[in-house]
Nucleic acid binder design. Structure first.
Lengths: 340, 340
DNA sequence: ACGATTACCAAAAACGTTTTCGTAAATCGA
DNA sequence: TCGATTTACGAAAACGTTTTTGGTAATCGT
């Protein structure tokens, strides 16, 4: 609570001199500098970031919209890793992280929240319906606020996104399946709006065609990234199409539910039915059987997003471009050769 | 970027009138109020939180020290749930969350960081060596900054902590084991400094004595919440004491490593050796066999911590007390009757 | 020795609010 | 109608910095 003024008074100098000393400006005399520094130490002074921000118009905080707007209290397993990464890189750059949580302001949007708090940039890390590119997203996109989203296709002068190569990932998943001899491959997707879901679906379809296996619309269901819906979809699919011998499910969480459901239904995985997921969440390796899946580089996604954001913030001439990171097929025990 | 001044000018009134209007003060005339509101809407004004904070000395942000200081990039599975809870309750109260990450300030402590940012309160959610009650913790404890820690015994006028009932939890774990007929029960603990570790160890020892089974120091090893160390400890324990028929391991992460190691060593779980963990992380239920463990109420821990903190902040006369939340034994498949 | 630079520092503006104080006009009570 | 409230508003201080401007004294080059 000791201010720059207190120091100035005690040192017998002006506040401007104190400010310059504290900020290592060159134009302050040797002895005055030392005196001021000593007094500051004694009074254990530390600057008030709020006051500083007010005049500098820079807060050294980067904002973060995080999680599922609808379904709070549930957060994606994905998040912990990307947040870790984000923390690491923004922290090293001298920034703190402001997680928007305030729910008292009803009449506000992403953009106005950012402006109110004067964050220097913002990271969008949303799931569920938040992925919908709605009005608020558009507003943010064109607001001029430095912004990078994860898995949401925002593009603008100060705005971009990073994602996994979902198309290729999905493609690799079904390639793996057809190479194991599978031809009747069910698909449990996400939703109909998110780019992520769309790309994975396209990867599935295109590869099926490319491999000479046809696409059968009746093999396709949407699970909306919900375990319950995925379970329901599985029952329907197996009931209507008992000839199916493999599933590609676009998230590990859903894939786990699918596996449970399949086993409840009396099918063995992978002997009767093969299963590949997407994400490579921690649980995947410990499932029984351990889940074959497409691994997303979560940590890299977070750190890339953060790096790009910092660059947008600090280099005015930088024009950001979307970044796509590779996925990787990791084969475990939930997939096997088709037997006849 | 439109300020209160702009509105004042356009409306032909003073800034104080604008401010009062915007803050719903009673003493402003009907027509002027409406005019001002309309203009504010048109110019799509929103207040500058930084400026407001400066004068009000209140930021409506609560700070958060989070994770493992040493070992960044790895965050405890525990965290996601308690953060979800924290977000929920502070958000509903109108606060945002500032996660401290800035690593550029070397000469700073928890306390000074909080003061610089002028957070209204702070949540300590640390693991690893951060749990050590060091100088910085003491400083924070007596700083007068509203503070609640999780699993770290801080107590002060504006400072307290919440934790699980680790003693009873541990006690329940070994009770379960001895009720299954086990007498030679190995223990893999945490560290020697944290209260959490200490309480669980005491629960183990006391219950053993209470049940008439002796405590054997050679059955006790420390794993420091690290999978590798837990694995090593397991090997040592089984080599030196092959008569052991059960383990109580004080974290699920370590318990998983112990299970893997045991299986590598050729033991079957639970047929040869029973195993109970602590935490009930998500993976626990999917391990093979599914892990019997002591469940911590992670969400409640987070929400309790947040609620207490808000009360400290908003009720000056409130004197906080430590809060202990119950654990619960959840029996799965990693424990079984001892066979001879 | 004289003008020009340089080194040091103070004064004051600025950032965008909230809040205190004061006061003119309007209303009120009798 | 007159004093006393009340109502509605403006002026200005305050919050704690950074930054701009300017000025004095010392130093320098020639």
């Amino acid at each position: 609570m000791t201010s720059i003024q207190d120091i100035a008074k005690k040192a017998g100098v002006s506040i401007s001199t104190v400010s310059r000393t504290l900020n290592n400006y060159p134009d302050v005399g040797q002895k005055t500098r030392e005196k001021i520094l000593k007094i500051a130490e004694e009074m254990n002074y530390f600057p008030n970031a709020v006051a500083r921000s007010l005049v500098q118009k820079k807060t050294f905080t980067i904002g973060m919209f995080f999680g599922n707007n609808m379904n709070l209290g549930f957060d994606h397993p994905f998040f912990l890793d990307v947040i870790s990464a984000v923390r690491e890189v923004v922290g090293n750059a001298g920034y703190d992280l402001l997680v928007f949580t305030n729910k008292n302001k009803n009449r506000s949007t992403y953009t106005t929240l950012c402006r109110e708090r004067s964050v220097d940039g913002v990271l969008m890390l949303l799931t569920g319906e938040g992925k919908k590119k709605n009005e608020q997203m558009l507003e943010l996109q064109s607001s001029g606020i430095p912004c990078v989203a994860i898995d949401i296709p925002l593009v603008g002068d100060k705005c971009t996104y990073v994602e996994s190569d979902n198309y290729t990932g999905a493609s690799d998943a079904v390639k793996h399946l057809v190479e194991l001899g599978h031809r009747k491959i069910g698909f449990i997707g996400g939703d109909e709006i998110s780019k992520t879901s769309y790309d994975r679906m396209r990867g599935y379809q295109d590869t099926l065609i490319e491999k000479g296996v046809g696409v059968r619309p009746e093999y396709i269901q949407l699970g909306h990234f919900s375990s319950e819906k995925a379970s329901k979809a599985t029952r329907k699919l197996m009931k209507d199409n008992p000839e199916i011998t493999a599933f590609f499910v676009v998230s590990d969480e859903m894939a786990c539910a699918v596996m449970d459901t399949l086993q409840e239904l009396g099918f063995r995985v992978p002997e009767d039915i093969s299963l590949v997921g997407f994400d490579d969440i921690k649980e995947a390796v410990h499932y029984s059987p351990p889940l074959t899946t497409i691994k997303q580089m979560k940590y890299e996604i977070g750190s890339e997003a953060a790096k790009i954001l910092l660059q947008i913030i600090n280099d005015k001439s930088f024009h950001p471009e979307p970044k796509t990171l590779p996925c990787e097929l990791v084969v475990r025990k939930s997939t096997a050769h088709k037997v006849d």
